[in-house]
């Protein structure tokens, strides 16, 4: 070894070092950790699997969709948040929408081009749908009554409600004296100045987490506000007294750890399982 050139010796030492450390850190360490974890925290270590009727129905930590085969909400269950993981709550494709905070202009579907909904329109559309499902107003700031982003492209002499495809009626008739038109799919409005219009919506019954996708796409929780919004509907559908449903919500709400860590959250799967339990 001593006779080898120093650079080669150094690389041999490096090779050995990688090998030795791989055995130590890449094999021994995870194996020992797994062994100990399996003994001490077996349930957690294996994914906090929950069962119903003797079958595994999910993980307490992984959110799931409570929709039917067509993707419509099952009205007897509390609904989870929107999800960007695959087609929704797909653990093999975790992730977020990654759409930006000023993503407000849709690409309208036109012959030959696929449309693309902006984040704002997604928020508005979800809000509208939830409003309808829960029987409350789905109106939000920056949203049109028909559930798209209330955004104008302003040109000299005219304005276009860029997310409202013709023949929709623009959410405002005029902007600063300019007539507002509906948007013709396929037309390029890039040259216009983008103006989101806040509108005058005050009360917004549908909470923020209900209209936004989570980071993981697997968020097992909803906010207490969203759970309470859904409670009357679930109670009605299941024929349960609303108080009983609220009681269950309370029982499956985790508060802030130590009173200040995190946010109060309702575990949807646990809550729905509890509802199913006789």
């Amino acid at each position: 070894m001593e006779r080898l050139p120093s650079w080669l010796r150094q690389h041999l030492a490096a090779l050995r070092a990688v090998a030795v450390l791989t055995v130590l850190l890449g094999l021994a360490y995870p194996l020992v950790t797994t062994g100990v974890a399996q003994v001490l925290f077996n349930e957690h270590a294996n994914g906090s699997i929950v069962q119903a009727g003797g079958k595994d129905v999910g993980s307490a930590l992984i959110g799931q969709s409570f929709t039917d085969a067509d993707g419509n909400p099952v009205r007897t269950y509390f609904q989870s948040r929107p999800s960007a993981a695959g087609d929704g709550y797909d653990p093999t494709s975790s992730g977020a929408s990654n759409l930006g905070p000023e993503d407000v202009v849709d690409v309208l579907a036109a012959p030959g081009t696929e449309g693309k909904e902006s984040l704002l329109t997604r928020v508005c559309a979800r809000s509208k749908a939830i409003g309808e499902l829960e029987g409350v107003s789905g109106a939000r700031p920056y949203c049109t009554p028909d559930g798209v982003g209330a955004v104008l492209k302003v040109f000299p002499g005219r304005a276009v409600s860029v997310n409202q495809a013709c023949p929709a009626v623009p959410f405002v008739a005029a902007y600063q004296g300019l007539p507002v038109e509906c948007a013709r799919p396929g037309e390029d409005y890039a040259a216009g100045r983008t103006v989101p219009v806040r509108g005058d919506v005050r009360a917004v019954p549908v909470p923020a987490d209900a209209v936004t996708a989570s980071g993981s796409g697997l968020d097992p929780h909803i906010s207490v506000a969203y759970a309470e919004l859904q409670a009357p509907r679930v109670a009605r559908e299941r024929g349960l007294p609303p108080d009983r449903v609220r009681e269950l919500i309370g029982a499956h709400t985790t508060g802030r750890a130590l009173g200040f860590i995190g946010e109060p959250a309702v575990n949807v799967l646990d809550l729905n399982l509890a509802l199913d339990r006789p």
Binding site: R81, A96, S97, N98, L99, G100, P101, E102, D103, V104, L119, L120, V123, C124, R140, P141, Y142, C143, G149, P196, R198, V204, P207, A208, D209, V211, T212, A213, S214, G215, S216, D219, H221, I222, S223, T254, G262, E263, A265
Partner: peptide, 19 residues
């Protein structure tokens, strides 16, 4: 920003438990 204002909070891409 527009979308957080519309949603009511900057919750896009965030988990409920963390806030």
């Amino acid at each position: 920003a527009t979308v957080p204002q519309a949603a009511g909070a900057a919750m896009e891409g965030k988990e409920v438990r963390f806030g």
